[in-house]
Design a protein around this nucleic acid. Structure first.
Lengths: 244, 244
DNA sequence: TAGATTGTTAATCGATTAACAATC
DNA sequence: TAGATTGTTAATCGATTAACAATC
């Protein structure tokens, strides 16, 4: 690798599409590690990660030259390099706001507590939930939000509140110094430019599936969904059809 | 619109990136509807959806010509057109497999039960969960999976099981006729080409945030994470650093 | 050396964006 | 008509992919 190539990598950074796939590769690699596999080819790793091998090699080339021609990649070494690139060799402190079923699922999620993430607080506004012990943690009152963020150095907030509460909570965590937000509430959050927001939306994913499902079932003799109720546009009926 | 343009639209279909944004526009529009807004410009709707107006207009142009120059879009009409395009004017039947905290959160999620999706079954392998009543539905034993799918015409399966059980469950729902899967288990599912899988992965989203957070904190005098423990590569220590 | 597999190139494809003609 | 806003064009940007030279 020439100094010029090295500089390019550092300056241009890693493409977003590649960053989004690195965690997938990391998971596949740790799976191989658990099965005692020491070395893997791009073809094998790509299959395990569900991508094609050209894309995998291109992605990894953005990190550096970590493979051996004719041999493949050393699993442990690649695990370390990807982990370091993603920032997982450091500890990130997370607070979960909203401790309903979703918040509980997140609090108990194995991938959260381990692998570089530490849940420093569970917070809720509901008095009947505050004080409950969940996976060894006591739920704090939302009034203590700023204390928890400052006291534990929280940099990532996970918002699992009802939609109506999400923007208010977001404003507070940002004011308290949080710079990354993972949002599960079905609203578009407004944040300053320096704050990163990622959104996980269950119903949006389902709607995307419905679109493709419709295309499959769509033929005149395909197996369509139940209650197919084609209301012609340009009438007033369409409002009912949507809101029913 | 010329016949030629009409044909292009039908033949080429809607770009994936556009399909993924249609549910976002739909949510913004129903929000406007609830506030009694009758007409909206691309500028206003784009702001509500968190995109720029050029992208919004380009996206909507793939559906048809549903705006009025100089005026904007009629909210109710656009809600209907997007709903129809996404297949939400039909009823899709969903089964949720795995009724832990996440499955419960999904079962109670407002966006699931309404808007074109009907949850026809909750299934779990755990005897202590089977028979429980959740949001008015009784949890069935996983043994009844094929019955539930066939009996209710389930076309979309939501997998919220532990990782180890996911592929087995997936094989069974596909064999029973399901053609769309929403997977919350942290594994890559293998399915036949005609089956659509979408994946929601909580820890992957968090890792992507960590990457960007690291870049922000990254400067030599930036506010870094706690426990920054830079272990040099090429030593055996890196394994601990990752798995700690 | 011969076989295998990486890392890179270059072509292709798809998505984004700004600008503006069309038109209400 | 004058002002406003859509729908489309065309340029740009970024991602994907196949092919293969480099090299272990």
């Amino acid at each position: 690798m020439t100094p010029r190539q090295n500089r390019d990598r550092a300056e241009r950074g890693i493409p977003e599409a590649t960053v989004a796939r690195l965690p997938v590769y990391l998971r596949a690699l740790t799976g191989l590690q658990e099965r005692g596999v020491a070395t893997v080819s791009s073809e094998e790793l790509a299959a395990a990660a569900g991508v094609n091998s050209a894309k995998l090699r291109k992605d990894l080339s953005h990190l550096g030259s970590y493979g051996t021609r004719g041999v493949g990649y050393e699993v442990e070494y690649l695990v370390y390099q990807i982990s370091r690139e993603l920032g997982l060799t450091q500890d990130w402190v997370v607070a979960i706001i909203g401790v309903g079923n979703l918040g509980r699922a997140l609090a108990g999620y194995g991938g959260f507590a381990s692998r570089g993430f530490r849940v420093a607080g569970l917070l809720d506004a509901d008095e009947s939930i505050v004080g409950q012990e969940i996976y060894g943690m006591t739920v704090a009152h939302i009034d203590r939000l700023e204390d928890v963020i400052a006291g534990h150095g929280v940099s990532i907030a996970v918002i699992a509140t009802p939609a109506a509460a999400a923007q208010g909570v977001c404003d507070r965590v940002v004011a308290a110094g949080v710079t990354s937000v993972l949002n599960f509430a079905p609203v578009v959050l407004n944040v300053p430019a320096e704050v990163d927001v990622r959104k996980v939306d269950l119903s949006i994913e389902l709607q995307i599936l419905a679109f493709h499902e419709q295309r499959k079932a769509g033929g005149p003799d395909g197996l369509g969904p139940l209650d197919a109720d084609e209301t012609p546009p340009g009438t007033t009926q369409y409002v009912e059809a949507v809101e029913a």
